[in-house]
Design a protein around this nucleic acid. Structure first.
Lengths: 236, 236
DNA sequence: TAGATTGTTAATCGATTAACAATC
DNA sequence: TAGATTGTTAATCGATTAACAATC
């Protein structure tokens, strides 16, 4: 194998699905969640204006985003059929058909993800976990077996797995990542605090807590600064 | 209290720190991580070109980003002093001085975050947790007390806490969020799968697994489609 | 019908990149 | 000095928004 390896934050070299921007793609699950709520409330139709107002987006943005998902079009004056829209979004997001995945790192975080029942709503099914720790190997977490990391490659090939989740400490992440790529994994969901280097043909999504916290801390700092020039706390 | 409440994904109405784009802000922790690695390797200086190559960004982007952080400037022909840059970035990100936070929802995920030792590197210190479950109340997780949710408001006020982490199931998230805002919390880090509605004066960061997975699944789908028109797997 | 709402094309806005002068 | 690299201003690119015709 001969890859042109290099770190790729998330700026995938992988082409985007026909014209949908990453930003739009990230908004889709938000729409889906909102529509499901509305559907449960018994509503049948909803306008882009209503969605936009709640989601604090422009109606035009919502319309444009949804235009990528909708098979049937919305009705002027009425809006979109919520049930149809839900189906369209689930299809677009691939939440309707389950993708099998493996997870490496059955520590605290790994355990949490293995135990999370919500992934089935997102079309993800973690079928097995791998670890190096003898204490964990051959145990079960939420009914899912933890195997020796050495068995990962053959498991992945045998079961045609294409998605891998990394929940090991930062310093081991690159090594695990390399093994996943070697095994044939095509998409990596990385929870480890590490800048992973992957071939450009592999999809990588970093769940980067530090990055999130950076944004939030920055906002908080601004808020505190503004508050100083006024009333200090909101508790009247 | 009278807020103009509305859902705000992450499109904060809160002003950005003097000119730094959100995108840039999110890249900062990646730079920091890389620089720390390099520093450990014994390197003293690094050029924006070298950083850019590894991070798969343009050198211009790196230079521009770093210009927001650097107090002293880089040296032509040599690059930036790594140690200085690390300090600058940590200061910019607020990772150098600790912010206290509380967490609501001491379930599996809450437990994981409470046990995570890495947050101190990010300037975050979760000082206490809150829950409704009698099984959890008055227990300790990683040395941190779990209190009755009813005590949250007074705790937050008494200890001048401004940052709250939400790790409750989706259906309870809005209620918890409202209580946090009422208590005086200014920044909310939400791990629950819910579209939270907050006053525009509150910073909100959603750790939205569904959104991440949406992007990753989409990329994977593209890859698999492309692969069909060629060799099927990478294992020669 | 009148008016709300859709869907799309053109304009704007913001972020990234290119160009280039300054400098060690 | 020559050349690599910085820092900044101008150009480009992409995503969001505005405008508007179509339609139920």
């Amino acid at each position: 194998m001969d890859f042109d390896k290099s770190y790729s934050g998330e700026k995938a070299s992988v082409p985007q699905k026909s014209g949908i921007s990453r930003a739009a793609m990230q908004r889709m699950p938000g729409y889906l969640r909102y529509l499901k709520e509305k559907s449960k409330d018994g509503k049948e139709y909803i306008s882009s204006v209503a969605i936009a107002e709640y989601m604090k987006l422009s109606a035009i943005c919502v319309k444009k985003d949804l235009s990528f998902a909708t098979s049937s079009s919305g009705k002027p004056k009425v809006g979109f059929n919520i049930k149809d829209l839900i189906n369209d979004l689930e299809k677009l997001l691939g939440f309707d058909n389950i993708t099998d995945a493996i997870l490496v790192g059955a520590g605290q975080l790994g355990k949490t993800l293995l135990s999370y029942t919500g992934f089935s709503n997102y079309g993800l099914n973690i079928v097995a976990a791998f670890d190096k720790s003898p204490v964990l190997i051959n145990t079960k977490i939420n009914g899912k077996s933890v195997y020796d990391l050495d068995e990962m490659e053959s498991f992945v090939k045998r079961n045609n797995i294409y998605l891998g989740v990394i929940t090991v400490p930062g310093q081991f992440a690159q090594d695990v990542c390399d093994h996943m790529v070697k095994a044939g994994i095509k998409a990596i969901w990385n929870f480890a605090p590490a800048n992973l280097v992957v071939p450009s043909s592999i999809a990588l999504k970093n769940e980067d807590m530090a990055a999130s916290l950076a944004v939030l801390s920055n906002k908080l700092k601004e808020i505190m600064k503004n508050d100083k020039k006024g009333n200090k706390r909101n508790d009247e």
